[in-house]
Nucleic acid binder design. Structure first.
Length: 814
RNA sequence: GCCGCCUUGGUGGAAUUGGCAGACACAAGGGACUUAAAAUCCCUCGGUGUAACAACCGUACCGGUUCAAGUCCGGUAGGCGGCACCA
């Protein structure tokens, strides 16, 4: 019998055709079967096409899903397109093409590339966020948020990208620059739609306890939400500062996490934007200075503010003072931009002895430092330890620990009615407006009489009007404002003339719920049928990039939890399990980018070594969760491995069963590969298969049974060539993907003999073969009677023996 | 500054979680086949050392626990990621 050369391109096309014709990977409607919903982040179809990073995540979950199907699960492994967004719109502006056309071209290209790689996606459930039948439900969800009071319009200062001319969420600002274009971000007051994600802060933290996310993701989400417990305390502010009876008294509430240090508060700081600064302007004797400082602070971008974090600046509000409520002491009031208007109450009590920032500030401006927790050396630095230390100089708190003092002072404040325990979060509400064309229109109408009125649900989708000019207006408004035919409408409530909202939703909108749509992608009456959601949700395994931890992953958890509270979805969490892949770097070890010229194109690699070898290398190159540089040579090595698998056909005997010579190896391999796939240790699974192949070549032959096991195990990684070998040699009536995942017999794994190390005083002196299955006593007995060991122990007195069955024996001698 | 992770041959990485460090590859060197090259196959491949063994050293560095440490504990240095004046 002679064999053809391994020719990936024809084999891969052939099997992709068969899978498509057979609808091999479509999820079944049979809800009686156990389900498995595997998900990878659907890509943004950029004009550059797929890069080698995409297939890392895709192949990993493709392996898991192919294995699950063979294990008998009803598997849903869908794919779609997160297609709204800026790059497409910018490309459209530059080239005078409608973004919808660009999107279609890009999607077609991406789809071809993904199909080329042989992923077992259920293409019948493909979704596209720019499809009106899809974004109809994105709009519908927004309306539910609006009706529930979680969407509001606000003219708070927002992050404004000077280059994209678009408002950004906090999450989209990286080092003071726009996450997308790298442009300068400044604070600008704009009227924007906001979503109250802060209402879900606690639920988003608590929910983490119920899901199986990698720890890193949980930690990052918790830090981002930034829950802190402390107290709000009312201080009285008096003016003028001279005279026995102040003309004005007003109340300022401060937030602190250290109410225990109240006796150490020697001054107060307001953020420059604090409203009291304006209200008391009349009494502030150095108001010119104050106004100048405010103007300077406002001019600084957030980035500049952070850059200057080390040097504390500020201005004392002369002419007024605050009263420390705990002892009636008069303390000065300052404004400084180290106090943020957007966190807590925008005002703090400053305790320089026990807060590093306050300490720096006090040192700079020569303000009193009063130690109230003993244990540090406040002449050198602030003492901020809360575990150690005893209260001093603190009246009724003296002698208590920090924790005890906290409790007492809060009780005292509550009794006096001037303070209470308070929880704060770093998480900010989500800026949901974009002054852009290529996004979902926000389905609201503004009516002079009725205010903001939702577009009636039966009128959804509210489609994007066809326009020709996609650039923003000169004052940074959405291009939709030019489309007066569309903007001018009637109020759905009172019927009078009204205007549509021209802002669109951010890219995160469509991706916040797409996994739900996969359960029932063609539904025209609901975002998905309840029974379908009830069967498929939650997503059993979601793999993606760490960069989405505080963006997409948090946003979609928020939407899901809201929908759950509304009774729209059946589960409290969207994703049962979350894993993350490491980034693939260029061959020079740097991040792949066009400007660095180190981008590897999957098309070229697949043309050279085939999709199966490409997939194998993506999984073999290193630990799945670590960043790894690409190596063209390494990829070729994986092709060599598949060549050797291919040529193993020539070494196949007529024996149908697993061969006696390889029996323990085959069973061991089944166990190893099965376990490793589940742990995403694809590199060691493939290494084990390579070792098995090497063993088979050394032996000179394999049985048909040996080959079956190997091909089944390798199939999820290299699905095309394994099917081809299987079919060409009639190894089964069914293709591999319809066979059951191989099982192993634990007893069969054991070899007759195993090599163990013999140590004397912990140093390896010899290696001996011992019968397998011996316990510690048996191993010791056997070893002591072994000639080589006898020789080693000759003339020595054994003090102690440690035997680890199957591994080693250690003689402690004198 | 805070939180988290990491550091093993020339390179990517293994090591059943405390039990034979360097699996499996890549690169390199040598050999076979070939007129030659490619492909393929075989051998060598942490360091010192030896004719070859032996022996000794070796998982960033210093110290500790243990019969036994890449793995656990304490400290130091370097790198990566996230947050960053959040009171």
């Amino acid at each position: 019998m002679s064999f053809n050369e391994y020719n990936p391109s024809s084999i891969e096309k052939k099997w992709q055709g068969i899978w498509e014709a057979d609808k091999a990977f479509e999820a079944s409607a049979d809800h009686s079967k156990l389900k498995f919903f595997g998900l990878i982040e659907f890509p943004y179809p950029s004009g550059n096409g797929l890069h080698v990073g995409h297939p890392r995540s895709n192949t990993a979950l493709d392996i898991i899903c192919r294995k699950r199907r063979m294990e008998g699960y009803n598997v849903l492994f869908p794919m779609g397109w997160d297609a709204f967004g800026l790059p497409t719109e910018n490309f459209a502006i530059k080239n005078q093409i409608h973004p919808a056309i660009v999107t279609k071209q890009n999607v077609d290209h991406f789809r071809d590339q993904l199909k080329m790689l042989g992923f077992s996606f259920d293409w019948s459930r493909e979704v596209n966020t720019t499809d009106p039948n899809y974004y109809r439900w994105t709009q519908w969800i927004f309306l539910q948020l609006f009706k529930a009071g979680l969407a509001y319009k606000s003219s708070m200062p927002i992050n404004w990208c000077t280059s994209c001319k678009v408002g950004l969420a906090n999450e989209e600002v990286v080092n003071g620059k726009c996450e997308r274009c790298g442009g300068e971000v400044v604070r600008q007051v704009k009227s924007q739609w906001m979503l109250k994600i802060t209402d879900y802060a606690d639920k988003l933290i608590e929910g983490l306890d119920s899901v199986n996310f990698i720890e890193k993701v949980k930690i990052q989400q918790r830090n981002w939400i930034g829950k802190s417990t402390g107290a709000e305390v009312d201080f009285t502010i008096c003016a003028p500062a001279n005279g026995e009876n102040p003309a004005v008294e007003s109340k300022v509430t401060i937030y602190t996490t250290r109410p225990d240090t109240l006796f150490g508060a020697t001054y107060m700081v307001l953020s420059p934007e604090h409203k009291l600064v304006e209200q008391l302007a009349l009494y502030i004797t150095n108001n010119d200075q104050v106004l100048a400082y405010k103007a300077e602070a406002a001019r600084k971008s957030d980035f500049e503010r952070t850059e200057m974090a080390k040097d504390k600046t500020g201005v004392e509000l002369k002419g007024i003072y605050a009263v420390n409520p705990v002892d009636g002491r008069q303390i000065p009031v300052w404004i400084s931009d180290y106090v943020l208007a957007s966190y807590g109450t925008g005002a703090i009590m400053a305790v320089p002895a026990h807060d590093t920032r306050d300490y720096e500030f006090a040192k700079t401006f020569g303000i009193d430092i009063i130690e109230v927790v003993a244990g540090g050396d406040i002449s050198k630095e602030a003492f901020t330890d809360i575990q150690e230390g005893t209260m001093i100089n603190s009246g009724f708190l003296n002698g208590k620990t920090v924790a005890e003092a906290k409790e007492s002072i809060i009780a005292w404040l509550e009794e006096k009615g001037i303070g209470h325990a308070k929880v704060n979060f770093k998480l900010r509400d989500w800026v949901f407006s974009r002054q852009r064309y290529w996004g979902e229109p926000i389905p609201l109408v503004y009516c002079e009489h009725c205010g903001w009125v939702p577009v009636p649900e039966d009128q959804l989708p509210l489609e994007l009007p066809a326009i020709e000019q996609f650039v923003q207006t000169d004052d940074g408004e959405s291009p939709l404002t030019r489309c007066t035919d569309w903007v001018n409408t009637t109020c759905p409530h009172c019927g009078q003339p009204a205007k549509r909202e021209t802002d669109t939703m951010p890219q995160w909108a469509g991706s916040s719920w797409y996994y739900i749509r996969y359960a029932d992608p063609h539904n025209n009456t609901a975002l998905a049928d309840w029974d379908e959601m009830n069967y498929w949700l939650p997503v059993d395994w979601y793999n993606g990039g760490m960069e989405h931890t505080t963006l997409h992953l948090l946003y979609s958890r928020f939407w899901h939890k809201f929908l759950y509270d509304q009774g729209v979805v059946p589960t409290a969490e969207p994703y049962a399990k979350r894993t993350a892949h490491g980034m693939i770097l260029g061959e020079n070890g740097e991040k792949m980018s066009k400007s660095r010229g180190n981008v590897v194109n999957p098309d070229d690699t697949v043309a050279e070594i085939g999709a199966d070898a490409f997939r194998t290398y993506e999984m073999f190159m290193g630990a799945f969760d670590q960043p790894i540089p690409w190596s063209t040579q390494g990829a070729r090595g994986c092709r060599k491995f598949l060549d050797r698998v291919w040529k193993l056909q020539e070494k196949m005997t007529a024996e149908e069963e697993v061969s006696a010579a390889l029996k323990s190896k085959v069973h061991g391999l089944i166990k190893k590969v099965s376990d490793d796939y589940e742990k995403m240790k694809f590199n060691t699974a493939i290494a084990a298969m390579m070792a098995f192949i090497n063993e088979a070549y050394t032996l000179g032959s394999v049985s048909r049974g040996d080959m079956r096991a190997l091909l089944q195990l390798l199939n999820p990684v290299a699905p095309h060539m394994t099917e081809e070998i299987w079919e060409a040699n009639n190894l089964g009536a069914q293709p591999i993907y319809k066979t059951a995942w191989p099982t192993y017999d634990e007893a069969a794994i054991a070899e007759a003999e195993v090599e163990i190390a013999v140590q004397i005083l912990g140093k390896i002196k010899a290696r001996i073969m011992v019968p397998s299955g011996l316990d510690a006593a048996g191993t010791e007995e056997f070893a002591k009677n072994h000639d080589a060991v006898k020789e080693l122990l000759d003339g020595k007195t054994i003090v102690k023996v440690i035997a680890v069955p199957g591994r080693l024996i250690n003689f402690i001698v004198r």
